[in-house]
Each structure stands twice: as C-alpha cells, then as structure tokens.
Design a protein around this nucleic acid. Structure first.
Lengths: 355, 355
DNA sequence: CTGAAAGCGCTAACAT
DNA sequence: ATGTTAGCGCTTTCAG
C-alpha cells in the first residue's frame, strides 16, 4: 500500500461489528462502553494498524495540540536552546511544536504567523523582529490564539505575555563588576545604536525596547550611577555578525586607546570581539578586560577564559512554554511579564586596569 | 472576540452574496470566476478578517504541507543547523516543519513519529536513535509517508532515503593527514566501541552503522592502509558528553604516553578533548597533535587554532529536504542514499610529531 | 451501553 | 461563471 490513510474508524467499527460511535468511544477509553467491546475494538484497531486522524479530531474539538515557535535564527545557540526547552515543556502536556525561522525578514515572520494561524495552532511563542508593523501579532492574539513574546517585546501587542532576561540588570552586573575593579573607560559593542533617551529608561517604560537596546540602556545607567561620564564614542554599533563585530571592536580600540574594558552585548558578537582583542596586540586582561554575553562552550576553552553575562536560557524557554500553556488553558487570564535575572560568571578576562 | 475560528468561508460567501463554492474558487484564484466577483470576495474576506482553515482543507486534499523533523538533540549545533537549512528549504515549497527532540530516548522517538503520522504530515526527516526497534519507522514508510533518514541509518527500514556525511572518508582525511605528518601512534576518542569487524567494513556494507562507528571504522581502515598496527588500547570510548570526553582523553594520554596525536570524532566530544589536552601539560601541537570534528565557532578562537574535519552540515540539511520533497511529489520514486564529503580544515593543532 | 444522525470548514464533482 | 450536493474522518448530541 502506498496510499495514505488506509484505515479509518469506520473500518475498525465494521471489523469489530460495532457502530462508528461505539468504536470512537472505545478508542477514547470512554467509561460508558463495556469492557468487552472496548477490548475487541482495541484489538481490531491494532490488527488493522488503525491510526487516528488528528486533523479530523481537531476540526471538531477546535484544538490541535500544536504550538508554533517563531524565532529569527534557529542556529543561534540562544534560540536553539530555548526551542529545546520549549519543546520539552510543552510535550509533557501533549503538545507538538511547529517551528519557523524568520532569518531576519519581517515578511517571513508575517507569513509564518499567518500560516500557523491557518493551521489553527493553539498558541504561538514568537521572538519578533524589530519593526513598526505588529499587525500580524495583534490580530493573532485578538483572534483568541494564546501568544507569548520571547526575548523581544512587540510594542503594539497587548494580550500577549512577555518572557525575557532582565537585560538592564544584566548590563548592570557587567558594568558594576568592571567599575568595581577600577575601570573608568569602558567601551561597549552592541547591536543597538545609542539614543540619549536610554539614560532615563527604566522598567517598565523600557518595555518596548529590544534586548540589545535594553543592554545598552543598562550600560548607560550603570555608568551614570557610578558617576562615570557616558561617551557616545565608546559605544560601537555592530550588525548581527561576528565578522562585523570584529571590525567594530578593532575600530573602538584604535580610536579610543584609553579604553581599559569592553562589554559585548550579544553572543554572536562576542566571538568577533574576542578575536579582535586577540589580534589587537593588547594583553587580556592586563591591558584590556573583556566581558561577553551568553555562556558559550568556548568560554572556558579560550585563554584567558572569558568572563560573561549568562542568560537563563533554559528557564526562559520553560517560562515561555508554561505561560503559553496557561494562556491556552485559561484564555481569559491576563498576560504576564516575566523578566528573569541573568548572572555574571567571572573568569579570567577581567581584571584591574593597568597602571 | 476571544473565540477561535470566528469567520468561515460561508460568512464570506454570504456577505459577498455568492455561494460557498464560488467564494472558495475566488479565494483560490481560480480562473473560472469573473474578475468582478473575485475582487468582491477578496475585499469582503479582508474586511471580515477571514482566515482559511487549513485543517479542513487538508481533510480533503490529503496533504498538510507540513513535514516532521525528529532529532536526538535540538541544541546540538549540527542538528540545529541542519534543522535551519531543512526549514528554509522546505519553506520555499510551501511547507512548515513540526519538530521534535527525542533527547536520546527511543520511546520518545516512537511517540513523536506516531504523533506526526496522526497529524498526517506529508513527510518526515528523522535522525534515528540507535536500537533494535525500527518498527515505527518502517510502518511510517510503508503507510506511504515520505521518509528520509538523516545522519544515522535505520537498518530495518527500506523505502527511506538516507543522507549523511561520508564518515569513513571523513576519518581517512584526518588520519591520512596525521600519517602524512609522520605520526604512528594515533589515538581516537569516539562515541563508538571498537569491534574487530570494523576493519573490513566498506560502503555499502557499513550502511547500518551509526556515524561514530563509521568514523571509527574509517580510522581503523586508514591505519591499516598505511601499514600501521591497530591497537585497541588507542581507542577510547566516551559517552555523548564533553565532561566524559575530557576524562577519556586524559586517561588515553596517561595510559599511552607514546601517543603523538588524537582524533576526536564528535563535536561535543571535541570540546572535552581540547580541554583535556590543555590540562595535560603537553604542548599542542609540539608534543601532541589534535583533530576535532565539526567546525565550531571556537575553532579559530582557541590557541592553537583547532584542525578539524568539517561536515557539510548545511548541504546535508538541504539534501535531506530536497529528497523528502521529491519523495512527497513522486511517491513511487525509489529511495536514494547520499553520502556527502567532509573536508579537512588544517589549522595549528596538528604538526610533525616530536623527536 | 450502543446506534443514528448531524456537522466541524472546506473542496470537488456534478449540475445548470 | 455560478450553485448544489456530497463527502474528508471524526466527535458529539440525541435517541433508544
């Protein structure tokens, strides 16, 4: 047989000598069927190789036991790990995951969300791309699909929960550590561009900012608290690429030789920054301290071992999944915001500044 | 509105003053509808916020435009990248991906495959776990679902294509490089255990072996071709864990101090092996050469830079996706086996042996 | 405890 | 070019 859907519940019913409905009830393990028929139906179903058609079931019940996960980059370690813990968490409750990588393209994100809705997933977890147009997400939530925003907010979308690292606090951890060591000239390589308004940004007024912007804001605020002047020339923008981060870091060091420490706010940027420091001729941590973002497997393999701000990636995935399951089970429950704390892992790439 | 599935095609039809089927045809862009009605239906649908129910559609057409991807470890870089290229490739053809991480548990794999079948996916790509029971996969394929095996074979399952790195060749690349440098005492850290039969294994008689066993076989064969004796004590087993690989490598070096080179056959094992070499007191590559598996972002960040055997991960994902799409489009087409070539990236961790 | 019938939302003949 | 009818496979009233 090469044809799909060979045996239906009708075949089972016929072979067991009962009606379609009785067969259905027996298979569902309903209590109002006699043990005898239940057994017989089960046996016949097994013999025939019956496999229930969940599509048909979903048509009636209205739920698919499927959730969507939409992230910008499936091969990014952060999202890959988040996906894994999401999948694990929802599976315990009988859900499968429809996944979609948007590769930085808003249009792909829009279409993915549209398709998920058309496939009637019970809920969606999305790490939205930055952009003005949140219409697709708003509609999804308003149409009654449970929605959780992961890692990145979507300003125009209420009715969605939000789970993320507390990025301002994460930066404070890094900068306070450096300041405590005596650093005063601290550069930053970030995927966000500086905006003077960041200085005043506080939770929850920053709720609309992307992670990188939040981390930059945390940097600015931590410096300010410490009474250290904030210098725009110390903040270097880098696109989402290790190679570009390399160049940004080299430039930062060349144009501001007085810098004694660099903080890098993203895991793909950290690799480029580390390589740049290696090639700069500066000795780390003697001449320059470096803090990376996210814990990589290489953090302890390189020399010096890298001090990093570590996000609670797995916990974020679990929290997002749990919030989603809650929203599915209880659609009227108001959305929640959960900011999980990062922590600093001090290794050998940070030290007292020279002289 | 918090209820799902607010507006159906009947609502659209009614609002547009046409019949259900005309509305359906118009929405599908069929040519036999007048431009006027097509426009009107489209406008009305947009106004009402109509979203087609793909479940209903799938019930009739028999396909879901969804493929399943089942892998042991979603956070492993190899599978994460493969997943990304699979998702990208199938999306171009209008397919979404239902993903499932089996975490090394056969029972989870079985259930995942069962669920995918119940959800009537059009095809499945699976990297099966090692084990005697392939029944779930065989049934899937025999019931007419397109099936591609990724990275690992499943002996009892014909009617499935197979896409993988040519692992024997991959090991030959590594060992030939070391032998060419003059090494004669070459150890291996592998997730496979040595079996004398490996010495004779050749494609396609090795078709049933897991990647790690294939790589071990390649090591044995390359040594044999070079006239170097194969010593069981040079082959060290490690479970799938960086920490365990660390211990295995330390032990290998302690018990066989004459070894001048180590080849490590898995990406998670490579990190542990590298750390072990760092801590061994041996200078790499002067005292000991090391070859890792898969290209990691840290390969160029550590010192010495790591020489590795690099798998064509993205190409594997693309090939698996394409073979699957082919099998979906043309169910009678016989399954294919594709072994893609790895290549050696020579960096600084390999050199002529001391003395 | 079991059966008959209705219908989920849509497409696909079959008419007109 | 449009409408009517009949299902896809299943669950779920409603009757017995």
């Amino acid at each position: 047989m090469t044809s799909r859907q060979t045996v239906t519940i009708i075949d089972v019913a016929r072979a067991a000598g009962v009606s379609k409905s009785t067969a259905g009830r027996a298979l569902a393990g309903a209590s109002e069927v006699s043990a005898r028929t239940r057994e017989k139906v089960a046996r016949v179903a097994a013999e025939l190789g019956y496999r229930p058609n969940k599509l048909a079931r979903s048509m009636i019940t209205g739920n698919t036991e499927t959730v969507g996960v939409v992230v910008p980059d499936l091969s990014n370690r952060f999202f890959a790990e988040a996906l894994q813990s999401i999948a694990r968490t929802v599976r315990k409750h009988g859900y499968e995951v429809l996944v979609s990588g948007t590769e930085g393209e808003r249009e792909l994100e829009r279409r993915s969300v549209e398709t998920l809705a058309a496939k009637r997933v019970d809920g969606v977890i999305v790490a939205p791309l930055d952009g003005p147009d949140d219409e697709h997400l708003r509609r999804l939530a308003e149409d009654g699909t449970a929605l959780v925003l992961l890692d990145r907010p979507a300003p125009g979308v209420d009715r969605a929960s939000f789970v993320s690292t507390n990025n301002i606090e994460a930066s404070r951890l890094a900068i306070d550590h450096l300041v405590g060591l005596g650093h005063r000239h601290i550069g930053i390589v970030s995927e966000a561009r500086y905006d003077p308004a960041l200085a005043d940004a506080t939770e929850p007024s920053t709720a609309g900012l992307r992670p990188s912007a939040m981390r930059l804001a945390g940097y600015v605020q931590a410096l300010t608290s410490a009474g250290i002047p904030v210098r725009p020339e110390y903040m270097r923008y880098s696109a989402y690429s290790s190679a570009i981060s390399y160049d940004a870091t080299r430039t930062l060091l060349r144009t501001n030789p007085e810098i004694t420490a660099i903080y890098c706010t993203d895991n793909v940027l950290s690799a480029g920054a580390f390589a740049a420091v290696q090639d700069s001729g500066l000795r780390c941590p003697h001449d320059l301290s470096l803090i990376g973002f996210d814990d990589h497997e290489w953090s302890t393999l390189v020399r010096p071992r890298l001090t990093v701000v570590e996000q609670p990636t797995e916990a974020i995935g679990v929290a997002a999944a749990e919030d989603l399951l809650d929203a599915i089970a209880e659609p009227t429950r108001p959305p929640v915001t959960r900011l999980l704390s990062a922590h600093l892992v001090v290794r050998d790439s940070t030290a007292t500044p020279r002289g």
